[in-house]
Write a protein that binds this DNA or RNA. Structure first.
Length: 371
RNA sequence: GCAGGGUUAGUGAAGCGGUCAAACACGAGAGACUGUAAAUCUCUUGGCUUAUGCCUUCGUAGGUUCGAAUCCUACACCCUGCA
């Protein structure tokens, strides 16, 4: 296990302010990371993503494995050279696709077989395979392959099964990770996050957290939330977990959460990193966040002749450039992708600004020593 | 001028005696999206402040019928042939 790669201060109210060292550079936390599933944050140039203040970007193992394949990514210089993204890159394991592609996949103890709905190709992912792919992709941070299950009424009965399998798979992921990184120098080695599961069952969650924290993983990821449960249920679990993390200086990564309200709640409950498709998907669907964590639908008729920026006073590139709501509405109406791009930049910046506010606040209020 | 064909809700287009306020598509209006099968999906779209209700519609005006967007007559306009 590496040492001293994550320095963190805990401020008043449990908000943490950290500096995570990855082989591709530092990541200031708390931080929101946009998802670039297929190697790009949809419709946004890597340099424009950087300009929002983002600290790290995600990509997805499952999608890049399917297309173009990790070999191609390796040939083109690894995930950074391939994508043109210089920021630290974190790859998700493909575990979420166990949930989102549930109707085309088959789980066995060995791993998961997916059937690509577009090509009919069979894709097999296992803990070892996922780590191998993430390594070939050249990820700076990676996630252990877990078993994600839904938390709607229908999916909850699989919680225990997914919980158990996630831990068995975590040990296999970790072993494969250690095997592949044993010859690497500390500053060349990527970081591995283990995933906490357990659904909405507090006892399971606590046990899962203990298991993950008991292993020499570099970071603690909280998974299996925002998958169909209510906001109250999710917040309740985050608040419950907040008191249970150990003192080891490891980053805590809440997987798949990105609504501003949830982002704030998570950060106030000790989470350091989050990722989500919401800012970019909402943006492409013409929904923008504005001051007060409200959202507006830019396609609404009321904005047709609105000369104001999306959020007057916003410091994002889109608002600063003066693109009006009326212009954006029109571009959405006629199906021009530029609108989605411009709003994506705004939404990503909106979340980033929240993170920056917490970082600044914590700096000022911080009372405890770096641990 | 003669002979055919056509005229349906914002647009295009089904319907061809009752189950038609009228399919479907687009457009329009609103909403949903949380480790991206998602530039996608859902709902509404004649009026009545909302209903297993009422009212007004299917070029215009009459007529036949218990009943018409659907049949008949006249007229208007639009196409296509032939003069």
């Amino acid at each position: 296990m590496k040492t001293n790669y994550f320095q963190v201060l805990t401020g008043v109210g449990g908000v943490r302010n950290g500096k995570l060292s990855t082989r591709a550079g530092k990541v200031l936390t708390p931080t929101f990371m946009p998802d670039g599933t297929r190697g790009a944050v949809k419709s946004v140039k890597p340099e424009d993503v950087q300009a929002t203040g983002v600290q790290a970007v995600l990509a997805n193992t499952y999608h890049l494995h399917l297309q173009p394949g990790e070999e191609v990514v390796t040939k083109l210089g690894g995930i950074h050279g391939f994508s043109g993204q210089k920021l630290p890159m974190l790859t998700d394991s493909g575990g979420f696709q166990v949930f989102s592609l549930a109707h085309t996949r088959k789980i066995t103890e060995e791993g998961v077989t997916f059937k690509d709905p577009r090509t009919g190709d069979t894709v097999f992912l296992s803990p070892e395979k996922s780590i191998q792919i993430q390594m070939k992709l050249g990820a700076d941070m990676m996630v252990a392959f877990d078993d994600v299950t839904a938390l709607d009424d229908a999916g909850r009965d699989r919680t225990k099964e997914a919980f158990d399998r996630t831990h068995r798979w975590l040990e296999r992921s970790l072993a494969e990770f250690q095997r592949l990184t044993m010859d690497m120098k500390p500053d060349e080695r990527p970081l591995l996050f283990g995933v906490v599961q357990g659904g909405l069952d507090k006892e399971l969650r606590k046990r899962s957290l203990d298991i993950v924290q008991g292993l020499p993983v570099d970071g603690i990821a909280v998974g299996g939330l925002s998958v169909g449960e209510s906001r109250e249920e999710m917040h309740g679990m985050l608040a419950y977990l907040a008191d249970l993390y150990d003192d080891s200086p490891r980053p805590r990564f809440l997987l798949g959460v990105g609504d501003p309200i949830d982002l704030r709640f998570a950060i106030e409950n000790g989470i350091d990193m989050l990722d989500c498709v919401l800012p970019t998907r909402n943006a492409r669907h013409a929904t923008a966040w504005v001051s007060g964590d409200k959202k507006i639908h830019l396609t609404n008729a009321t904005y047709a002749e609105d000369a104001k920026a999306i959020d007057p006073g916003c410091d994002c590139a889109t608002c600063q450039a003066g693109y009006s709501r009326g212009f954006l509405r029109h571009q959405f109406q006629v199906g021009e992708p530029l609108a989605g791009t411009l709003v994506s930049i705004h939404n990503i910046r909106y979340l980033q600004r929240i993170c920056e506010e917490y970082r600044n606040e914590t700096n000022e209020q911080s009372t405890s020593k770096p641990n």
